[in-house]
Structures are given as C-alpha cells and as structure tokens.
Design a protein around this nucleic acid. Sequence first.
DNA 1: GCCATATCTCTCATTTACTAAGATAAATAG
DNA 2: CTATTTATCTTAGTAAATGAGAGATATGGC
Lengths: 160, 160
Amino acid sequence: MATKKASQEGKQALVGRLMPAMRRSSAAGVLHGQAIAKKVGVNSSDLECLDLILLNGPSTAGEIARRTGLTSGAVTGLIDRLERLDLVERMADANDRRKVLVRVREDKIGPIGALFSPLEKSIGAILAGYSREELATLLDFFERSGEVLLARVAELNGGK
Amino acid sequence: MATKKASQEGKQALVGRLMPAMRRSSAAGVLHGQAIAKKVGVNSSDLECLDLILLNGPSTAGEIARRTGLTSGAVTGLIDRLERLDLVERMADANDRRKVLVRVREDKIGPIGALFSPLEKSIGAILAGYSREELATLLDFFERSGEVLLARVAELNGGK
DNA sequence: GCCATATCTCTCATTTACTAAGATAAATAG
DNA sequence: CTATTTATCTTAGTAAATGAGAGATATGGC
C-alpha cells in the first residue's frame, strides 16, 4: 500500500518523504534502546556500551573511553555498574598489568538478547517480503549511509 | 560495488548482512546526534527533544514527557534549558489553562539546521543515485520499521 | 451551581552519573 | 636506575534525572 502509492510518485517527492521517515525511524530506535535498558535495569548508555564491548570483543577501559568519548572516571563507574550486575567482568591483562580488560559475560546476557528478539523478528518479517534486489538496495543504502555518518561525525568532532 | 556483490547473494545472506549494517548505521546516527549537540552546547537528549517538538508541532509538557519517557519534573527542566537558549518558547493553551504549549522558535534554530545540512546533502547524494522503485523500497522499509519499533516500544513500556 | 476527583505543570530533596584534576601503579626510554 | 609516559582509579564538584507532592485548572455527578 505504501509501496504502491510511493511507486507512482516522482523521485523528488519520494526523497522528500524519505528524510522525515528516516528521522522518525531513527528516533523510534533510540526509544527502543531506552525501553530495553529500563527493563534490564541499566541506563541506556550503559546498555549501548555493553553492546559495544560485545561487538568489539574484550576491551580495556581506555578503549571504551575513546570509543564512547567518556572520561576515564566515567568509564570506571560504568564498568563498576555493569560488573555489579554481573554483565561484564574485569580481567587483568597478562601482558600489561596496568590494563584492565572488560569482558562481557555471555552466559549472563541471554535475557537481554531475548528483549531484542521480538524486534528482530518483526524486522525479519518485513525483510522477508522483499525481493533479492530490494534487499540489495537496502543493504547498499545502510552501508553507504553508515559511512557518510561516520565521516560527518569525524568532521564535527575533529577541530573545525 | 557493494550493490553488485550484494545482488549476487541469496536473500538469506543479504538479510544476515543487513542486520549488522543497520545496527552500525543507527549507532553512527547516535554519534552524529551527540556530536551536533556538543557543537550546539546542549546535551543530546535536549536536542533530540527539540527535534521531536519540531516534528510533532507545538506540544504540551505532558506530551513531551509521554513521548520521551521522562518524568514531568525532568521535562520542566528540559524546557527551562531550551527556553533559556531561546530555542523554544512557552505559550498558554487557550482552551486548557493548566496546559503549557512549547513551541520551537523556528527563527532561532537556523544554526542548528546548518549543522545537519552537510549530512542531509550527503544522504541526498546517495538517494539521488537510486531509481524511483528503489526509493520506494527504502521509503516503505523506513515507514514500516518505524511502525514496528514504536509498537515494540509500547509493548516494552506498557505493563508486561 | 457545587463539590469531589482528575489532570497538568512545577517545585524541591535526593540520587545518579559525568567532568576535571590528580593519585597510584606499571611499562618504557634513555 | 631514573624519568617519563601510559592506564586506571579516586575524589570533589556539578548537571540532570527521579519521586513525592503542591498549586491551579478542568470535569462529572448530584
């Protein structure tokens, strides 16, 4: 229905509708993260940070600080909170004993993953309705938009 | 290139690549918002909230609280901060004098819009390369994913 | 119309989490 | 071995959220 209607519009009109649709969807994504965090009982930046560690593998406090833009003191507190909930654990780095490696306790994060799966299922259902070509278009767009976003973030943060 | 490669893959493989691409792109979107907020001199939830009011038109404090999940006390402080920067103004609601309408001062947010426009331009350039049908696919996806996100957020917050 | 109740925003005390500065400990360079 | 650098943690101060509740206005039953 949306598809049928949209397919009769000109490119310009479609682009005009896409921008706000993206904004809305991304705002809803933020709300989703917040809602999950509330259920889990952590604040949403802690949850994002947990995801980050999961994505990048065991990380030192300094790496986390650099990636998140937090100060070292804030990261100490963040790890303390996640550790108190048994979601991560601190490990000594064998090579450099100043470092503290933070590792996600994958055996303890099952319930968090379960909170994400209804969304993943819904999104999966939407994606299942697309052709291979349509999926390729979506993938292309997300990869390219991710790149320009990161480039712009670097521009905004770096000097200027 | 990404397109060419992707178009030769099976649907399953494409979906498998899409999920992380979406996560990355959305994480980059969060970083972008934070970087802009820092430039503007507000915290990032205040900026998101400003965007929300702009998107939905003049809103009462209660509506903002409901949409953001903040408490009424937090919303008062949030509006105070935005008002102090002259980015919004409080107006009495003529019909219900308990209510306070918050309106974005569109004449004062130009510099903020300017910070977003390089990104919009880059995204626009990406979109310009797609056919009408491809744009329709993207629009369809963003509209539908926005809907399922909001539905899931409601489910997470409402009871259960 | 009047009263009880509900709704809406704001206030205030408390709590949470961040920053900035600096202390501590370990690694590395000279 | 000493000086410097690197990495994390500690602490004091600050910003912003929560939760409880006050004050003002609206609404529905009588």
